[in-house]
Nucleic acid binder design. Structure first.
Lengths: 201, 201
DNA sequence: TATATCGCCGAACGGACGTTCGGGCGGCGG
DNA sequence: CCGCCGCCCGAACGTCCGTTCGGCGATATA
């Protein structure tokens, strides 16, 4: 029975081990650089070094391809942040670790999460609910981190989260590799919030 | 009966010039809600109540239509911020006025500037240089406002501008009318920066 | 009233799109 | 050594795209 199990696993590995991952990367790259609608299946296929029709062996449609890119992007960043939060520390240190991980994956972690930031499945897409649920659960991590923060009275943690995540998520539009590192940017952004900027004239 | 109404409107519009402005609004709306590539000339024409071929009387191509939407969006927000800065005030008050105007136009000022935030002309587009120059000049306003701020030593005003504008520009993704007003959001965001959040536990 | 111009119509064109499908090749189980 | 099946090819199909163009009614000019 070990033979059967091993053979089955080998078959599965072979099936998923082929060029499906390569194809997903090509799709993420094309979706990121051209946008979902402008990136044609022919572009993606050429990027992955295969024929357009061959894509449909791995994915049933272009829309599902985008959903798969989203799921991979969300999976990566969720894992990176979760791993960064394994280290113990105070509330501010934990938030900083999460922001550093978030920005690092976004800006230097390949095309998947940037593609997630750029393109969203259409409102009518049946796979949209899945990816929005993943996004909501991910952002809940930051909501919890902010809840754990000892903030002055009256600070709206909801809007604070929107500001912090918005500032970070927008960065993929202006970031160019080689200048400031994502970790440094994250720490600077957090510093702007932690320290008082108004010197009181 | 639709013919009669359409004919009447045509006569009225005719007296005001033509339907170019209406067409531009339809283009901004479609570009915003569907994205540039997914919005077809037929969609835009139908939204404006005309035939697809008629667009080409006003604009030479779809790409130029996007450029025109960008220019109108940038014109509107630049004017709104300039007008907000006419009132005298201290550095922080002036920055707050600019942020309030920026967020108000972005979130409640129609589809033009949101379309600008969502879609950019392609890198090969000859009109792209024009719109990027308009964007650069606009963001310079905020750079000047930050330069005028009496900030603590060592604060990176460049990254501070990227954080502030990024947080605001991202807001069109989560903002829904009826809740907090854009002005209130802008003031809260600025408050997070001005006041110290770290209570120093 | 003749005429030129403006603003738009309506139909068409060539091409690119997402997707389908029969077939073929190479490695693995028997 | 044969037959099977995972994986991909190559060519098509119908549809929709951006764009072009001849024409037409209404308006301004004379």
């Amino acid at each position: 029975m070990a033979d059967v199990a091993q053979a089955a696993r080998k078959r599965v590995v072979r099936r998923q081990g082929n060029r499906r991952a390569l194809l997903l990367e090509a799709a993420a790259r094309q979706f990121l650089h051209q946008g979902y609608a402008a990136a044609s299946m022919r572009d993606i296929a050429a990027d992955a070094g295969m024929q357009p029709g061959s894509i449909y062996y791995h994915f049933p449609s272009k829309a599902e391809l985008l959903v798969a890119v989203h799921e991979e992007g969300m999976r990566r960043i969720t894992e990176a942040v979760a791993q960064a939060l394994e280290k113990p520390g105070g509330p501010w240190a934990r938030l900083e670790a999460a922001c550093v991980a978030h920005l690092t994956v976004l800006l230097e972690g390949g095309d998947f999460f940037q593609a997630v930031m750029r393109e969203m499945p259409a409102k009518s897409d049946p796979g949209r609910r899945r990816v929005t649920r993943m996004r909501d659960r991910y952002e809940e991590i930051f909501a919890d981190l902010l809840d754990a923060l000892p903030l002055p009275r009256g600070v709206d943690r909801h809007d604070l989260r929107l500001m912090l995540l918005g500032a970070m998520n927008w960065s993929y539009r202006w970031y160019r590799p080689g200048a400031e590192s994502p970790a440094k940017i994250a720490r600077k952004f957090l510093g702007f919030l932690r320290n008082r900027l108004d010197t009181g004239t």
